[in-house]
Amino acid sequence: MSRIKLTFIPVKNKEILFRKEKDKIIMLNENSGDPFYLENTGAFIWEKIDGERNINEIFGCIINSFEGDPKLIKAELFSFLQELEENRLIFLDSK
C-alpha cells in the first residue's frame, strides 16, 4: 500500500529547470544535469504542482479535464507522483 496520502502537498524541487514547449515539459536537474521529459497527462499534472494544491486537489483537476475511471486515475496519479519523488523532481510535504 502506498505511503502517499491525498492530503500530501507535492512541491517542485528547486534544482529542476523546466520549460513548457508545445505540449511537452522539458526538464533538467541544475546540479546533476539529469534530463527528464513529460508529455500529456504527466505535463498536465506537473503544471498543477504549485506547492499549494494537495494531491486530492490535483486529482480533482484531472477528473475535471480527463475522462476515465476515477479509481484507476487515482492509482496512476499516486504511481506517477511516486516516480517524480524517486527521481527527486518533487518532494511530498506531509503537513
Binding site: 511537452k24 522539458i26 533538467l28 544535469g33 534530463p35 521529459y37 508529455e39
Partner: peptide, 9 residues
C-alpha cells in the same frame, strides 16, 4: 521520447 534538441550546452 525522442529529443528534438540538446537541453544542456
Amino acid at each position: 521520447m525522442k529529443l528534438e534538441k540538446p537541453l544542456l550546452i
